[in-house]
Each structure stands twice: as C-alpha cells, then as structure tokens.
C-alpha cells in the first residue's frame, strides 16, 4: 500500500460526493454504499482493489444541469465526473438522475 494508503484515508464515498456536488450543484445528493450486497460477487472477490469495499453504490442526484438532457446523457455526465473512481475500482453505480422540475412533478403526483 505505502503511499497509496494515505490517499485512501478519504473514503471513496466522500470523494464521489465531493466531485458530484461541485460538478452538478446538486440539490439532492444521496449516495448509498451497497457493496456488502455484492460481497460474494466474483469480480469483487478476485480483485484486490475491491478488498476495502466501496465498490457498489446507489446514487440519487437532482440537478438543474440535467435539464433538457436525455437519460443516457445524464448518466454519461455522472460517469464523466467520476471517471477517476471508475478506473480505480468503483465497480457499479446505480444512478437516478433527475431535474428539480421532475422531482417537483413527481411529488405532486404522489399521494399526499
């Protein structure tokens, strides 16, 4: 580990949050580490990068930046912001990306 160890002191979750927050001015940013659910996953088991967990996340992000963007585009935007993480062992990211407007509509529709 050596020099890498110091770098790892900041958890991946924190890094992801920081990056997304600055890239998207997110109104809502919820990140859930679900790595434990995938602990037996073949890809996780065999890879030393994954030993520390923090491989699988669920993300819910609401940002005005998604306005007018297709779902694919929104996911790509998120992936782009997290390119570094994806290259260093972030294995799966389940994304729900919405605009503030969409959330509003959804809330109105939902029964009070």
């Amino acid at each position: 580990m050596g020099s890498r160890g110091a770098k790892e002191l900041v958890s991946r979750a924190t890094k992801i949050k920081t990056k997304l927050q600055s890239a998207f001015e997110a109104r809502i940013l919820e990140l859930e580490d679900v790595s434990h659910r995938h602990a037996s996953h073949a890809a996780v088991k065999g890879n030393p990068n994954f030993a520390a967990g923090e491989t699988h996340f669920n993300l819910r992000i609401v940002s005005p930046r998604f306005e007018g963007q297709s779902l694919v585009k929104r996911h790509r935007m998120v992936y782009d912001a997290l390119a570094e993480e994806l290259q260093s062992g972030l294995h799966a990211l389940s994304i729900v990306a919405k605009t503030p407007q969409e959330v509003e509509i959804q809330q109105k529709r939902a029964p009070q």
């Binding site: 779902l71 694919v72 996911h75 389940s94 994304i95 729900v96």
Partner: peptide
C-alpha cells in the same frame, strides 16, 4: 444507439 444500462432500461 445506446439506450443505457440497467437503470435506464428499468426506468423506461
């Protein structure tokens, strides 16, 4: 054309 992954397909 890429539609997306599991999340997008599920949502659609």
């Amino acid at each position: 054309e890429l539609v997306g992954g599991c999340d997008i397909l599920t949502s659609m």
